[in-house]
């Protein structure tokens, strides 16, 4: 945090006249703590306590509407988890979902950022349009794509009328097509995130580097590979990491678009937990799943940062 040293306000040399009550030095020392205290309080009560209580409940048998059955079960919930096929299925789905989403969002977002970073007439408008799905919620995405995917009202209906494909069944009702359909809907609103982040970083590439590369005879492709990509590396690592966590935890879209179906084909791990919480009120087992997910997520994140040598190159 070397940055902070240089931006810290130095009190004026003379200093304000010392007040009678408290010395200015003490006030200055306490000020930052006072400023962050509301946030610390909020985070402690509504984030740290819940995390702690998840760990606590993970070791209990606790079904909300059967309070007479509450008991300490140790690792019993985790043992049950290992034998729960739905846990393994949902975990596998989550992995597949995160990899597909993040990879495609990154590739499309990178391409899009490069395109709208060029100069052309109507660029501001193009950017606004291309970025706009970023602000759309998961539930609204579902509404929109329901209209598009519905066999009676959707685009496939119109496409099949002009002879492209056939619109017999709903893509959301078919276990073979539902994954692709959900991935495309989520891509629609997910790509702008990468495009925005990468565009922000693209604008900090020093122009001189491109000039130097061009003098050295590098074409467009080579200057992209040797100038742009290395510059973007840390931003890409950070964006993919944040997005992976976010996509892993994201429930809204799948909950409303497919509700995990058909036949559990699109049940992600968080969705499974949310269903447990809402339907069976089995908070003990749900907490064990949450703890497991948290550990898996943390492990993968650390591994990813290690493997990508984040922040080490320059």
């Amino acid at each position: 945090m070397a940055l902070a040293d240089r931006t810290t306000v130095r009190p004026p040399a003379a200093g304000p006249p010392p007040t009678g009550r408290r010395g200015p030095r003490l006030r200055r020392a306490l000020a930052p703590y006072a400023l962050i205290s509301p946030t610390v309080l909020l985070l402690a009560v509504f984030l740290v306590v819940p995390v702690g209580s998840v760990v606590h409940y993970a070791l209990q048998h606790h079904v909300v509407n059967e309070p007479y059955d509450d008991a300490f079960v140790g690792l019993g919930n985790f043992r049950a988890m290992l034998g729960d096929q739905r846990f393994w299925d949902s975990l596998a789905f989550s992995a597949k979902w995160v990899v597909a989403e993040v990879l495609l969002q990154l590739l499309l977002g990178l391409a899009l950022a490069l395109i709208v970073n060029e100069t052309f007439v109507g660029r501001a408008m193009a950017r606004a349009l291309v970025f706009s799905p970023w602000a759309v919620s998961g539930v609204l995405t579902t509404s929109i794509w329901m209209l598009l995917y519905n066999p009676a009202t959707g685009v496939f209906h119109y496409l099949s009328e002009i002879g492209v494909g056939n619109a017999g069944t709903s893509v959301l009702g078919n276990p073979d097509t539902v994954f692709g359909a959900a991935v495309v809907a989520e891509l629609w609103r997910g790509v702008p995130f990468f495009a925005i982040l990468i565009l922000a970083d693209l604008q900090s590439v020093p122009k001189e580097l491109y000039e130097a590369a061009s003098i050295d005879g590098a074409g467009r492709v080579r200057s992209f590979l040797h100038v742009t990509l290395p510059h973007l590396r840390d931003a890409i690592v950070l964006a993919t990491l944040l997005r992976s966590v976010w996509e892993f935890n994201n429930v809204d879209l799948l909950y409303t678009l497919t509700n995990g179906g058909p036949a559990g084909a699109t049940t992600s791990l968080p969705l499974y937990v949310a269903q447990l919480a809402r339907k069976s009120y089995d908070f003990g087992y749900g907490s064990a799943l949450t703890t497991a997910a948290f550990v898996i997520l943390l492990f993968c994140s650390v591994l990813y940062l290690r493997l990508s040598k984040f922040g080490r190159q320059r």
């Binding site: 984030l47 819940p50 966590v245 935890n249 937990v273 908070f283 949450t290 948290f294 994140s301």
Partner: peptide
């Protein structure tokens, strides 16, 4: 700062149960 960044890993959807209790 580190704590702020770490909060990004806490799954909001999975905090439903304990938050409900609180």
């Amino acid at each position: 700062m580190l704590a702020l960044l770490c909060t990004q890993f806490v799954p909001g959807a999975m905090m439903l149960i304990p938050l409900f209790n609180i």
